[in-house]
Design a protein around this nucleic acid. Sequence first.
DNA 1: TCAAAAGTGTTTGGTGTACACCCATGC
DNA 2: GCATGGGTGTACACCAAACACTTTTGA
Lengths: 232, 232
Amino acid sequence: MPVGVAADLVILTVRDGRLQVLLIRRGIEPYLGRWALPGGFVRPDEDLESAARRELAEETGLSSERIHLEQVATYGAPDRDPRGRVVSVAYLALVPDPPAPVAGSDASSASWVEVASLLQDGAAGPEAVADGLAFDHRRILGDGVERARAKLEYSPLATAFCPAEFTISELRGIYEAVWGTPLDPRNFHRKVTKTTGFVEPSGATTTRDGGRPAQLFHRGTAPTLHPPMTRG
Amino acid sequence: MPVGVAADLVILTVRDGRLQVLLIRRGIEPYLGRWALPGGFVRPDEDLESAARRELAEETGLSSERIHLEQVATYGAPDRDPRGRVVSVAYLALVPDPPAPVAGSDASSASWVEVASLLQDGAAGPEAVADGLAFDHRRILGDGVERARAKLEYSPLATAFCPAEFTISELRGIYEAVWGTPLDPRNFHRKVTKTTGFVEPSGATTTRDGGRPAQLFHRGTAPTLHPPMTRG
DNA sequence: TCAAAAGTGTTTGGTGTACACCCATGC
DNA sequence: GCATGGGTGTACACCAAACACTTTTGA
């Protein structure tokens, strides 16, 4: 059975207060000209996660080491790729805001696209993005986003969207963008700072968000959140 | 790149109040004579989940349709199988208590093994089960069990371990076996019956557990639990 | 009548939510 | 001073843990 194994990436970021995903405009058939998740085949002696990290570096130029990357699921319907049997292992990557708008490596171009416009209920309205994503990438994107949303509740994952130092407001902005709901700034502040190991004060302050100076924090060490954050 | 794609199964049940997993005694090299998770290669025109269901039926004789089955993760380290490159998609199956003790299809034998004895901290003590599981199956088992433990909290998954009709005590026994902690029978009863959509009374009662007759319930329709069950 | 398990009531402390209020800066 | 966002205090509702207590069966 000749089977290809690919690693596809759901690379998420929060820009302008909205959740966005990195997509590639396909330069070859099938699905020429359509948007697709970045990815590629796993090499003969390459681990699955190594392949995902390599693709991530190729597409974003990010020296992947510090980027959060986790496996989401594997997709293997026999007819998911018209070229033949391809099993795709999907990875979720979370990157802090201002990663270079990306350099197209081959004849394809990449860009950040708002997730909300891709996941409209119903089959990706035509007015959204062309005719929707290539292959089964809409489903993969949906699963990846759902994973991210769920993990924000019980893990400190939201900090993976932030630069090394951030304010509580900025962290709240991540939650609001990913969940799509407004949160009470005061209760959020209390909750985050009282959950041990979530964030730790760096001592510095900033006024970049306007108003009274805000304390800067960096990620804590807790692997899970007790108690969890609750969705609006 | 010649790559084999396999589906491996973590088949869990609760028997005698303890969490057990179905293992196969390997009849061929490599790892001849060692315990391993049941599984096999995905066929050319077969979906991944179909392959998992087929293996499940072959190993347990269970007409898989009503069995809970979900994908857990995919394992693809280049050296995980000495025969060559094999990427394995692991599935978690939960079966109600008394599935036939299994009929060995080929030269191998299958049996239920207590999970606790396989996952002792440290590298599976020698006294546990032979020299531990074949391949990277100990890790796969660990991931599968962790998935099950986590999902009991926020989903009605525990009912997948139960027959069509069950008492609240029996359901509690599932939680206690999977989590490995005792739960207060009174608070558990209240919590389960008050969480809408978790279980629904069938009207009948039974005294099979001794004492006062207990109401029988069947699974409800809620996909998730609000509020979640909490681990002791 | 007793043991055993089912199920209910009640108390108590913790936690999430809503919102009033004060603080520290830029303009 | 005033607008803007940062951060704290507090009242109330709800929920979970602990456990006393009643109910209904089999032996």
